[in-house]
């Protein structure tokens, strides 16, 4: 590994820690910013009894200074003590643990679809002539306007009423059955991002096709497929990677919509439900979790870019 990559890694770790710290402060302060008594905020949509008030004050150290409350909260999260949901009357950890798996599977499934169809159609648009370009452009224009919930209801209608090939409810059991059940949710999540990735890929590839170093390769007689692989796609990949981290992280949030539409008990549906019942402790922990996912995935993408393009790691003066 060269110095640039190491430098990126070190720099990213620092940024990562700082962003996580700041984000945790913002999420923690939700309790303070909620109108009314913090006890009420933490109790969620239920009316607390005097015993419950006592329990909440004790658990969240509400009699301590604010910064100590923060430290207790963060310390708890770091040591696996995620607090208690007074709405669900159980540990937040116990609520989250069984739901993570299905959401992770759904997000990965979606990411695979996006990678195959988004990048694939972008490459086709960039390289297969004006007609293919036009067709993909029309497709992606529509795709960019197709939110998850619209695709979801279309799929539910088509498959529940007309075709019936895929289940439209529930998450299934076991790996293959889960994949089977998650197919329609994954498609509904993927459509918008497929269009987005198609556009990004097309732009990046077209930019590289006209790059001067590709002229060099052409005049040297390098075969077309090899030029594409070694000089066009490789050089376009940082631009695609740059949006990948954000996208996959965002999928963890938007999966809530697909979970809701297809009746899947995942992390997203828990987040939605908890928010609806004003269960702040649960919402806070899931939010923080999603931020962690975002920051980590983004750092991974940045490191991948630095491996391909060492110059991306060199900060410019005044930058």
């Amino acid at each position: 590994m060269n110095a640039g990559v190491v430098r990126t890694l070190a720099g990213k770790l620092g940024e990562l820690a700082l962003t996580l710290f700041l984000a945790s402060v913002v999420i923690f302060s939700a309790v303070l910013l909620t109108p009314g008594d913090p006890v009420a905020a933490l109790a969620g949509g239920i009316r607390p009894t005097p015993e419950l008030i006592e329990a909440i004050r004790a658990q969240h150290h509400l009699d301590d200074p604010v910064w100590q409350q923060y430290l207790h909260w963060v310390g708890g999260v770091l040591t696996g003590d995620l607090g208690t949901s007074f709405v669900y009357k159980t540990d937040v950890a116990a609520l989250i643990a069984p739901r993570i798996g299905v959401t992770v599977l759904l997000v990965l499934y979606t990411a695979v679809l996006i990678a195959i169809f988004g990048i694939g159609s972008g490459v086709v648009a960039a390289t297969r002539g004006p007609r293919a370009d036009r067709a993909v452009l029309i497709g992606t224009s529509i795709g960019m306007a197709m939110p998850t919930f619209v695709v979801a209801i279309l799929l539910i209608w088509v498959f529940a009423r007309v075709l019936g090939w895929f289940p439209v409810y529930g998450a299934g059991e076991g790996f293959l059955d889960s994949l089977y059940h998650l197919t329609l949710p994954a498609i509904s999540l993927a459509v918008l991002y497929i269009a987005f990735f198609s556009r990004i890929t097309r732009g990046a590839v077209v930019g590289q096709l006209h790059a001067e170093h590709v002229d060099t390769a052409r005049v040297r007689g390098i075969p077309r497929s090899q030029i594409f692989r070694r000089h066009v796609f490789l050089n376009a990949s940082p631009q695609i990677l740059a949006v990948s981290g954000v996208t996959v992280a965002g999928l963890f949030a938007t999966s809530a919509i697909a979970e809701q539409a297809f009746g899947i008990g995942g992390l997203g549906s828990l987040l939605t439900e908890a928010a609806a019942r004003k269960d702040l402790p649960v919402v806070q922990v899931i939010s923080l979790l999603l931020v962690v996912v975002f920051v980590v995935l983004n750092a991974v993408a940045d490191i991948a870019i630095a491996v391909i393009d060492p110059d991306s790691a060199k900060p410019r003066r005044n930058a």
Partner: peptide
């Protein structure tokens, strides 16, 4: 500089 692939 522009005519050499910077990544290779």
């Amino acid at each position: 500089r522009a005519h050499l692939n910077p990544f290779r």
